[in-house]
Design a protein around this nucleic acid. Sequence first.
DNA 1: CCGATTCAGTGAACCGGTTCAGAGCAACGA
DNA 2: TCGTTGCTCTGAACCGGTTCACTGAATCGG
Lengths: 346, 346
Amino acid sequence: MPARRRATIRDVAAATNLSPAAVSYALRGMQTTAETQARVRRAAEELGYTGNAVARALASGRTGLVGVLSGSLEDLGEQRFVEALGRSLGRHDLHMLVADARGEPERERSLATRLGGQWVDGLVVSALDPSAGLWEELGERLPVVAVGDALGGRTVGQVLFDNRSGVTMMLEHFHALGHRRLAVLTPSRPTTPDRPAELVVAEVCARLGLDATIVNSPHSVDGATEVAAALLAARPRPTGVFCLSDSIACGVYVAAADRGLAIPRDVSVAGYDDHPVGRVIRPALTTVDWNLDEVATAAADLLAAAVAGRRRPRGRARVRVAPTLVERGSIGAPRAARRRRPAAAR
Amino acid sequence: MPARRRATIRDVAAATNLSPAAVSYALRGMQTTAETQARVRRAAEELGYTGNAVARALASGRTGLVGVLSGSLEDLGEQRFVEALGRSLGRHDLHMLVADARGEPERERSLATRLGGQWVDGLVVSALDPSAGLWEELGERLPVVAVGDALGGRTVGQVLFDNRSGVTMMLEHFHALGHRRLAVLTPSRPTTPDRPAELVVAEVCARLGLDATIVNSPHSVDGATEVAAALLAARPRPTGVFCLSDSIACGVYVAAADRGLAIPRDVSVAGYDDHPVGRVIRPALTTVDWNLDEVATAAADLLAAAVAGRRRPRGRARVRVAPTLVERGSIGAPRAARRRRPAAAR
DNA sequence: CCGATTCAGTGAACCGGTTCAGAGCAACGA
DNA sequence: TCGTTGCTCTGAACCGGTTCACTGAATCGG
């Protein structure tokens, strides 16, 4: 058998004695009688015609593909977000082109231009280098939705606000329980100078009179374990560790166990994401739920609307999804606070 | 400013007084002098020309996109696999089109035809419905790599063997420790009649004289918790639970805790994947490491070679990656075995 | 009964690249 | 000096759809 060439629209046209144009219309249910449509569909079926998505995309100027640019897919939370996003995008018949910046802003830039400039109808950026003018430029050309970037205050095409308040809530929670000396583990993005998360943390800590050490950590559990090990060995040891992702919190759990420290007796730990594993580890993890599903749905809907409407991203719709604090067992009162009445130590 | 049209190759041609063909060659470093190439590159730079990937794909018949069809992206192991795969594919300049069958074979079929028939140069299928002739058909048209399917014995385009031996090792491990009554939790795929995993499990159990109940479970931690709760309430309770994914094992941990059962004293648990969380939960999870990174690399390499060479998938290269048993704390001897010498209780 | 409208279907241009056959020219060997 | 070779570049066809302007026939209102 002569390695059969894939059937094209012209083959279907020939088989039905119609013009390619008519076939094109018929397959999309336009400008043709129901009878013709049925005839075309039957012929297409017989020939195994499925249509060439690339050709369609070139002609129609729409790919039906959405770029998903993750800051670091190694992070459990991001993985889960991608899954949720895929589900939501699927409802709009959009497919995901997933790219992983692996924590490197320069890779993020290159992927963004590669994908954004070429393949996709829209872009979801889940963790970005806010210092780049890149986003504004991309936003000119196609709908860009940024999630989890409320911290930056920078506006790209369309933004899904969220977690400034999440960080604040958690820090206040630590404070209310008597903590005064914290470590904050934030996902490392080596070359970005003004990480928004750090700014918010610093600001809130200053307001509350919290002494916080901000430390970068890889997203991976193993990487975080290493960082946390050093942290927990320091003197004086922080009474609490706030991790900006549950992934990192897992690392802290391991490091604490290695060192024989009990959570929350010896050290309190908090995460960010509300990943399912937070309910499996012991003690269950106190964390911030940023309503990932809702965010994913909103992002998908926004993007789908923009894509369908060929709307210029000028629309700048903003959806704000409020995070919630999920209290479980991993934060307790610090030693000092348990012995004496917590003083306003400043 | 008149919403500037994106620069095309003809614009660059005009700017350099060359033909589009020459520009095309120059940009790829072919058939042109170094001087011309430099001139073209400069002009392209100035015009902000990036090239249209869709047009290029149509003309060249190659998209540089690889479809990644996951059985269920809800599974933590699959998430991690996708991440690893992305990294490996990136080395070959391939991008990932990620699709999630969500455990439904029919969705798997439709996604496979949609992606495979249209967009991608190749396909990685991580969990498939082995009963479908679909794969053979797709394999005719493009390189298909199936991972984790040694169980089926069915050959699609190219197959990455693995986990038959993994399942066997673990069951033997249970057996050696004295377990005789197991529950096996396998990811649910509702409509597939002859799930290969079940067949292997049944076969090995028969050989070892193990009494195993095979139960379907969703991939999600929550879903698995529910299933496990019912399982652990049954009488007689199985002495061990072998989960065919770490995700599911997490669910069992939660269910056990809810019921006040200690692992491994009251019930032993094993997973499959060697996901990082297995080292965070307590007791640390005994599991099968199927060397996901190696598998991902092999899959990517195979696919890249096939894509680059335009090789007909006839090549049927097979790579076998051997899994390893990772013993940690979650399997112990069952009660009965601890009291008296384990009898062949049947 | 006639002109206007509607509708199914056609032909050709187009999307933006790649690639093939061939042209023009310089360098080369005989 | 001339034919050959090799290199750079051109024009046109092509990938496989979509869409626009248009035609001929059927339908409609008056």
